[in-house]
């Protein structure tokens, strides 16, 4: 089941990648003549970004549930979800950065979304550093869960305030904006395929990592029962 999802995710994202260049409409540069190929990264960047925020939310839910139940498996799930978050947040940053370079001709822009993602990266890395600096297992899990929930709470506040601060905001708005591109069915279809694929990938990576964790846990149990 998990492998099927993984395969599906891979298939869909690859399909979306191909479709982005063959099927979806291509925007024009400001001169209105030459095609703006850089825009096609949109079909990768946005789904990754949305998936990353969703996985972050899942991780935060596991953090809170761990605090309420103190069940070790919830801590493991929170940790794995944070790992997936880190992967997707970094992918978002990289694809976003490629875009800023191509589109705005700068390597980095302190623009609300980029700033928020930069902070999120730091918070998620911070989550793992906090984990590694505590020896006692239960305490480690508790501290990580508390920090994880606070981090998730602060991310939207950071995002909104950064947007208010430089309310100029030149981040492109594709759907619902006046760019017009998102209204074409081809763009929408490509986008949806990419998004579904990305979510399938996120979910199956999470499940596979959990499977691995459970296996190594069983190994530990065997070790303990042999070692007395």
């Amino acid at each position: 089941m998990t492998y099927a999802l993984l395969a599906l995710g891979g298939l869909l994202t690859t399909a979306a990648f191909v479709m982005a260049f063959t099927y979806a409409p291509v925007a024009l540069l400001d001169d209105g003549m030459r095609p703006d190929i850089s825009f096609q990264i949109f079909y990768f960047h946005v789904p990754v970004a949305e998936a990353s925020f969703l996985v972050f939310a899942v991780a935060a839910v596991y953090c809170v549930r761990f605090l309420l139940k103190k069940d070790r498996i919830l801590d493991t799930k929170a940790r794995i979800a944070m790992e997936v978050t880190l992967l997707f947040v970094i992918l978002t940053m990289v694809t976003g950065d490629l875009w800023t370079r191509a589109r705005w001709n700068v390597w980095w822009e302190w623009e609300p979304r980029l700033t928020t993602y930069f902070l999120m990266t730091l918070l998620v890395i911070g989550y793992f550093v906090v984990r590694n600096s505590v020896d006692d297992e239960e305490r480690r899990a508790t501290y990580a869960a508390v920090f994880g929930s606070l981090a998730f709470l602060s991310a939207p506040i950071s995002f909104t305030i950064t947007r208010v601060m430089n309310n100029v905001g030149n981040h492109p708005v594709v759907f619902g904006g006046n760019a017009g591109l998102g209204t074409t069915p081809q763009a929408l279809v490509t986008f949806i395929i990419a998004q579904v694929g990305m979510l399938a990938l996120a979910y199956s990576i999470f499940q596979l990592r959990m499977r691995e964790e459970r296996a190594s846990e069983r190994l530990e149990v065997v070790k303990i029962s042999l070692g007395g």
Partner: peptide
């Protein structure tokens, strides 16, 4: 209660203080 004390505090404190 962590091994890094002040360093760990900075790491958690600053990104949460951003807004």
């Amino acid at each position: 209660n962590t091994k890094g004390r002040d360093f760990i505090l900075a790491l958690m404190f600053m990104p949460l203080m951003y807004p």
